[in-house]
Design a protein around this nucleic acid. Sequence first.
DNA 1: ACTCGTACATCCACCGGCGA
DNA 2: TCGCCGGTGGATGTACGAGT
Length: 307
Amino acid sequence: MILPRHGLISSRLHYFQTVARLGSIRRAAQALNVAPSAISRTIQHLEQELGAPLFERARQRLKLTSAGEILVYHAGASVAELDRARAFIDDLQGLRRGSVSIAAVESVARGLLPETLSRFWSRYPDVAVQVTTTGSQQAFEAVARGECDLAIAFDARPPKGTQRLAGANLRLGALVPPKHALAARRGVRLREFAAERVILSDASLTLGSSIEAAILGSGIELKPIAVTNSIHLMSAFAVRGHGVTFQTRVGVERELEEGELVFVPFNDPSLRPRKLMLIARGKAHLAAGPAALAAMLSEAIQRLDGR
DNA sequence: ACTCGTACATCCACCGGCGA
DNA sequence: TCGCCGGTGGATGTACGAGT
């Protein structure tokens, strides 16, 4: 049994509209892919219900009566309203039990994302979320390829076909233990850590490459005690007093809140703020679930701007 | 004018899915 | 399980146009 595109709610109106448009039950039947008899009977039912003929049967041609003209006008409005209602209902269902996929850099997955998802799930508890941690450029490319709905990353170029939804400039700084000599300072220079044990991120992270460029540009020689691509390890080493590390506040929210580390921003002009960005494949592509999460993430990212 | 082929709407019997 | 509803295919009646 082939149902017309509007289902039972408006199939009669849809049949009627098609017959009125084509002026023939047979052509309407071909257009709708049903038997002519089905349409004929549907029209008869409508006429019985309304108590008035909708077509004049003359010379093998169906011509709308005045009642038919009135119904054509109102049926068009009704079908359009049903389409609108269907779109709203689809969106509502997407928010009730849809899914969202996100690619994010590790630092975002440690703090910003869990915090925002807690708020998201308090409103939309049945929307499933798939989170993949990866490098910045890879995260953005995953969105461009349609493999995920949203991506959050640092200092990466949004690929063609994607749209930037939010951005924030985040200062780079040193993460030091509370008892460190520089912990109370309002700002520091990179060269002040020349004699220190430092924990650096490797060049596979955008963080690593921007710090490496600043080190090379200033001619400072640092003594890295550890080099890693893990934001988690960098902060864990720093908390245990193995050395100081350099990054933004994103990813170490818990350590800062609990007083395990202190963030001291850099004053070096060569250490420019890092740009955190949220992208999607264009707002028009976002279903209800991803759109709702994107709105919450945008708000959270914009609150970070300048910090 | 009549016949014939074609196109169309309608009627009827029957089938299958779905909900009470 | 049964009734309702919407589907299909075949039969039938009607109208039209072309050919004779």
